[in-house]
Computed example of a mutant assay.
Amino acid sequence: MQPEFCTLPWQGGSVHIELAWVGVDDAAAPLMVFLHEGLGSLAAWRDTPEKLCAACGWRGLVYSRPGYGGSTPRPHAQAWPLDYLQRQAWELLPALLQALGVQGRYGLFGHSDGGTIALLHAARHPLTHSVIVLAPHIMVEEFGLASIREARRQYLEGDLRSRLARYHADVDSAFWGWNEAWLHPDFGSALSLGAISLELKHIRAPILAIQGQEDPYGTMAQIDGIAAILPATELLKLPRCGHAPHRDQPQRLTEACQAFSRRCLPPLPPQRDLP
């Protein structure tokens, strides 16, 4: 992906957002916005957006949130607010779409934190035509917090910092923003099932929710909880799959996205020869 940059007002200043357009070069094709995980970025997606867009006939918008990838880093003395997922969904993403001149309907493809952002955004933005979420979080589970604590240990003592550094201009900005927010004792009140339920019930777009059965960051309660609020949600539970279905089960994910798109999105109009 060849990145470009967009400047947005944000939190009393401005931020540069790293982004790329991928997929079908046709304005009539469905637009899908890709929202990365808590330690992800545009580069960390690797070729997943291009492959999915090619397989499903989508245009794709991929970007790094502030603090990640090549976007403006988080000031090291500044902690993410505990409602950072809500702010990304309700403030940053709408501002980015407006700045890029996106008009009409669009879909959301979110992984982990990005899945939560996708759900929260769709709840308040009826132009969302579809939502695909991989390993989303709608509540804090002790099961997942144990893995986040282990990630902290691996970052300080193992090779996690060096592995992440290839995807972020400021790797400490990316890691500590995410890790410290999630491990804050009050984070569970910001990401509680009760609070998220009040939002999710307003989603009108079709949802495909996918979870790996070996995900160390969340149990099936996450996507089962979405279906309990929105019974029309399509669930896909993948065996032999961890936290990243697009890496662990790429073929199965692609097939599920293709079928979901055929059911939920209008096909491209046929091309006509000019007279």
Rank of each mutant, 00 (worst) to 15 (best):
P75W: 07
Y106K: 03
P94M: 00
T48M: 14
L42Q: 11
R105P: 13
L82V: 00
I132V: 06
L85Y: 05
V22N: 08
G57Y: 05
S64L: 13
P75S: 08
A89N: 09
E91M: 03
G114D: 12
W80K: 11
A28Q: 12
G115R: 13
H36Q: 11
L52N: 04
P136T: 12
G57P: 07
P94W: 00
I132S: 02
R59Y: 05
M32E: 08
S71Q: 09
R65D: 05
M32V: 04
T72W: 01
P49H: 05
Q98F: 02
Y68H: 15
F143K: 09
L108P: 00
L97A: 01
E37I: 10
D113F: 13
Y106V: 08
H111D: 05
H76I: 10
Q78P: 03
L96S: 03
L85N: 03
V102W: 01
G23D: 03
W90D: 07
L134T: 08
R65C: 10
G101S: 06
Y63M: 06
G38C: 04
E18N: 12
G40Q: 13
G144E: 03
V102M: 02
V131K: 02
W21M: 13
L100W: 01
C56R: 01
M32G: 07
A20V: 10
P73E: 09
F34P: 02
H121L: 14
M139K: 15
V15L: 06
G107F: 05
W58S: 07
G70Y: 11
V33K: 01
P126W: 14
H125E: 10
G40C: 08
R87P: 01
A77E: 12
A135H: 14
C53V: 04
L108V: 02
W58L: 08
L19K: 10
H121T: 14
G57D: 08
L127E: 15
H76P: 12
R87K: 04
